[in-house]
Simulated assay, not measured.
Amino acid sequence: MVRRMFIPLAAAWLVLSLAPPAQAAQSEVYVALGDSAASGPLVPNQIGPDYGCWRSDHNYAHLTAQSIGAATFRDVTCSGAQTDDMYTSQGTDLGDVAPQLDALSQDTTLVTVQIGANDVGLTGFIEDCLNLLPPPVGDACNDDYNAGGQDQWRVATDALRARMTTLISDIHARAPQARVFVVGYATYAPPNGCYPRVPIIRADANYIRATLMYFNQMLAEQASAAGVGFIDLQTPSASHSPCTGPGTRWIEPYVPAAPAAPFHPNALGMRGFATAVTAAVTGVL
Rank of each mutant, 00 (worst) to 15 (best):
T72I: 00
L110F: 08
I68K: 11
Y51C: 05
V277H: 06
S241W: 06
V183E: 07
F263D: 01
R4K: 13
G95A: 13
P199C: 04
P191Q: 14
L14N: 07
V281E: 05
H264R: 10
M218R: 03
P136T: 06
V228Y: 07
A159K: 14
T109S: 11
I208H: 01
L160W: 00
R271N: 07
W54M: 15
G124D: 14
A147G: 10
F263E: 01
I168R: 11
A37P: 00
T166H: 09
P246S: 15
V284K: 14
A65D: 03
G149K: 08
V137N: 06
P134G: 15
A276R: 06
P259I: 03
C78P: 06
P135C: 08
G34T: 12
G149P: 04
L160N: 01
T278Y: 02
L268N: 03
Y30C: 04
C78T: 12
M164I: 12
Y195P: 05
I201E: 04
A71Q: 11
T72S: 14
V228N: 08
A65L: 03
T282K: 07
R249S: 09
S17C: 08
A238G: 12
A279R: 15
A274E: 05
S237D: 02
D35G: 12
L285I: 10
A12P: 15
G95T: 14
S39K: 05
T77E: 10
P262Y: 04
M218S: 06
I7K: 15
C129P: 01
E28G: 00
V76H: 05
D85H: 07
Y51V: 05
F6C: 07
T112E: 04
E252V: 09
P191T: 14
G148M: 13
L122D: 00
W13E: 09
D107W: 00
P49M: 13
I231M: 13
P21N: 09
I115V: 12
T248A: 09
